[in-house]
Nucleic acid binder design. Sequence first.
DNA 1: GGCATCACCGCAAACGATTGCGGAACTGTT
DNA 2: AACAGTTCCGCAATCGTTTGCGGTGATGCC
Lengths: 331, 331
Amino acid sequence: MKDATTLKKISRALNLSISTVSRALKNHPDISEKTKLKVTELAALLEYEPNAYAVQLRTNNSKVFGLMVPSVTYYFYDSFIAAMEEECRANGYSLMILQSGDNPAIEQENLRLCRQNRITGLFACITPNTTSINAFLKLDESGIPIIFFDKVPAFEACNKVCLADAAAAKIAAETIIYKKKKRVLALFGNNNLSITQRRLAAFTEIFRLNNIKALPGIEHVQNADEAKIKTHAAFKSKNKPDTIFCMSDEILTGAMKAIQELQLKIPHDITVISISNGIIPKLYYPEITYVETSGYKLGKLAFTRMMACLAGRTFVQELTVDSVLVEGGSI
Amino acid sequence: MKDATTLKKISRALNLSISTVSRALKNHPDISEKTKLKVTELAALLEYEPNAYAVQLRTNNSKVFGLMVPSVTYYFYDSFIAAMEEECRANGYSLMILQSGDNPAIEQENLRLCRQNRITGLFACITPNTTSINAFLKLDESGIPIIFFDKVPAFEACNKVCLADAAAAKIAAETIIYKKKKRVLALFGNNNLSITQRRLAAFTEIFRLNNIKALPGIEHVQNADEAKIKTHAAFKSKNKPDTIFCMSDEILTGAMKAIQELQLKIPHDITVISISNGIIPKLYYPEITYVETSGYKLGKLAFTRMMACLAGRTFVQELTVDSVLVEGGSI
DNA sequence: GGCATCACCGCAAACGATTGCGGAACTGTT
DNA sequence: AACAGTTCCGCAATCGTTTGCGGTGATGCC
């Protein structure tokens, strides 16, 4: 930046003081209409933009939010980011995006960056390997509100917004039962994640409540490839599944790969249902029926929550966005 | 931020001047080892982080890059963003992400934000509707380097990094010819985009050079849905295609939808080849053969270019990342 | 004419860091 | 003892903005 327009420059040109120019631009009642007009006109001409850094220094309010995700390339987070960015722009905030790569060390480093940039608030999705959230809590105590989202710490008192994990799994299970499917292969993710645990618990609970004797076969997979392998294995067994449930998009892509390789017809040979934000299921034909967990909606909710925190209406709580079944033709 | 540690706080605690503390932390030779030790120890204890805003104000160097994309949710940009973020962290920069939503008005507004935040450089992907890039050029002239990427302006003198659009289309065309396919349906995007024009020109050129009589049937589509419709239409005609070429991921998803709906077997009934960054083609079975245009690589290249600009090694030029054929089983 | 009441504007101190310059205290030399 | 040369450190200005407070000139009123 060579020489941007500053208050000083405007003030000199109009033979006014810096404070008068500042107040004129802020429509302060102390300034006469005539002066205001002169100032605003020249400011527009010179394309004056207040130096955000000077403002932050003076006001101690940076108007920047931090956003930490494992990776922006994961299926889910891009829609979350999109929602965040929309809200930020609408409210005059900027976004500083940080990736942890699911690495706790980078996560800590990112927190340092957040402090350095004096962010006014942080949206964080912790890694599965994060053992201590002390650094997060310290930030929160020092006056920087933190909204945990999606992968939230089990820990007691902090602000969280989540997808309705239990509800989504419940809807999926109920759909399966309603469709009278008997031999269910249920593919879940890493069991260390609370999201997996919650979905799994809710899923099996429904079968129990409905007194289903033939309980789903549960498998835990780490990625798409393992999902594919497990699916293949299931079809080699004598008791072939008639339905596959996938806890996430990544798992769905793996299972679908296997289904396509086996040349199975959906829903004739096999039915499928998943939990997803909706992009991936619509790529297939027939489109996969899924329980929607909208990253977009979650982003909106997180932002609203952040604003409430900043406004001081701040008792910690956990909020969820509800889920809805989106019918494809896969079950 | 309630009360972060500042140089002043440290200096008072140690009965030193602010300047001494500042120099001690920067390992300035004027300061004795003993003092340096005292200072660094206390700074570590109090978790001192320099106020990025004060630093920027004083040094006029914000260490923040702007990144403007149509939408972070598009198939291609997430990998670009991931690469950017990696490089930024490695080099001590932060990233301010802005979405234009392919709306020129928002694009202008975003540029205002960039100026307000005194970014040190901007990575920009313009919208198809951007008629004037004057605002961009003004930023560049005022000392903020701009690297255009992917969707770059046709305009003369500006720094651009692009995918090897022509080369990628050329490889696809050559592959089709090599496989002796005769009835090609080629799906291209909006013809106003230079990317479309370049790919189309290179694609048809190859057929001409090889003296192929049966030229590909060219169709322009705006989105996945139109791609689906055009594909269906092609199969209703008497001269059914034996190959479909898709210029982008979005188009591929549309074409694949139609192929699945028609229950066509790949590569028996129809063969497919596309240009992609690799995520989408691998979802299908058989995996779609594609010419790789890596957003990740492009991100790395853009960053390198930015650094060169900032270092002053700055003659404008257009760089490209080369393409490579990734064989699936679809052709 | 004297005095209070406005409307309008400027002074100056902050915010936190960087940096040129000058200066004190010490060592060593003649 | 006087002086030069080091070593180590502090003073003060500066970046661009915000804001409390005080001040000037004009007006109105008795």
